[in-house]
Computed example of a mutant assay.
Amino acid sequence: MALKPTIYKFKIGLSDFDRDYYDNLNLTLAQHPSETLERMMVRLLAFCLNADPDLIFTKGLSSVEEADVWLKTLDEQTKLWIDVGEPSFERVKKATRISDKVKVYSFNTKSDVWWKQSSAKLSSLKAEFYQFNFEQISELVKLIDRSVSLSCSISANSIFVSSDTADCQIDYKVLD
């Protein structure tokens, strides 16, 4: 019998001061049985950083042919492909052929090693690479429940997330 995903519901008051984008999001995330809470929350942060009415979560780990998050046009053209983690050069290269824009959000404790080993090849691709601080992501995980309301403010490579019980700051940097 296959394990089923765990479902999380998020109500997010989003204020992205960098893009002048403000919205109230009602998001449902399915955590794949093999996905960590940290990875799921990075998918959520990547969604918030790129929020758009047409942005959607995909099947993620359940389908290797899809991004973690993407933006498609009405005629199914991929405008934005977002991957979370440390994808291979081949995966990012394929994404750049399929999509107008590609973004990768790295977050693991092994991110520095991955970037050091892969940056020469990856930098040749038309893609943007970002890195979150893993310890801060671990703090973010403490805020979640199966159903939670969050406030998310984005400004100058920093995301401030607060819930009814606590808050945390997550910094990210551009990898180049």
Rank of each mutant, 00 (worst) to 15 (best):
D75R: 03
Y172H: 09
D167W: 09
R91H: 02
I154A: 10
E90Q: 14
L37G: 02
D75G: 02
W70I: 00
D75P: 01
I12E: 01
L175W: 10
V174R: 15
Q131K: 14
D75T: 14
G85Y: 06
D16N: 15
K94Y: 13
E86N: 11
K93C: 04
T58P: 01
L25N: 03
V104F: 11
I170F: 08
S163C: 01
S63C: 09
F132C: 10
D16T: 14
K72T: 07
D75S: 07
P87D: 02
K9N: 10
L61Q: 13
D23R: 15
V174H: 13
S118W: 10
S163D: 02
V42T: 03
I7N: 09
L71E: 02
R146L: 15
L27C: 07
S119K: 14
I137K: 03
S88G: 05
N157M: 10
A156G: 09
S63W: 05
V92P: 05
P5W: 01
G60E: 04
A95V: 04
L29C: 06
L140M: 04
I154Q: 12
E86K: 12
K94L: 14
D112L: 12
W81Y: 08
Q169K: 11
L49Q: 03
Y105R: 09
M40F: 07
L14A: 05
K142A: 00
A156F: 10
P53Q: 07
I137D: 00
C48M: 08
K121G: 07
R97I: 12
E135S: 15
T58S: 00
Y22R: 08
I137L: 04
R91G: 01
A46K: 11
V141W: 04
I82E: 00
N24C: 08
L3P: 01
S34V: 15
L71P: 03
F17I: 08
K101M: 02
Y21Q: 08
D164N: 11
K103S: 11
L55S: 06
K59N: 11
G13A: 15
F17A: 12
I7M: 10
C152S: 05
S88I: 07
C168D: 03
K94A: 12
E38D: 02
R19V: 00
C48F: 05
S34I: 15
D83N: 15
K11W: 07
K72I: 04
W115V: 07
C48S: 11
N133Y: 09
F160H: 13
S158V: 06
V104P: 09
S155G: 08
D75H: 06
I170W: 06
N108W: 14
F57P: 00
S88W: 14
K79W: 05
H32P: 13
L122F: 09
M1K: 12
N133K: 12
E35V: 07
S88T: 12
W115K: 04
Q31R: 14
I154V: 12
Y22G: 04
C152Q: 01
E90F: 14
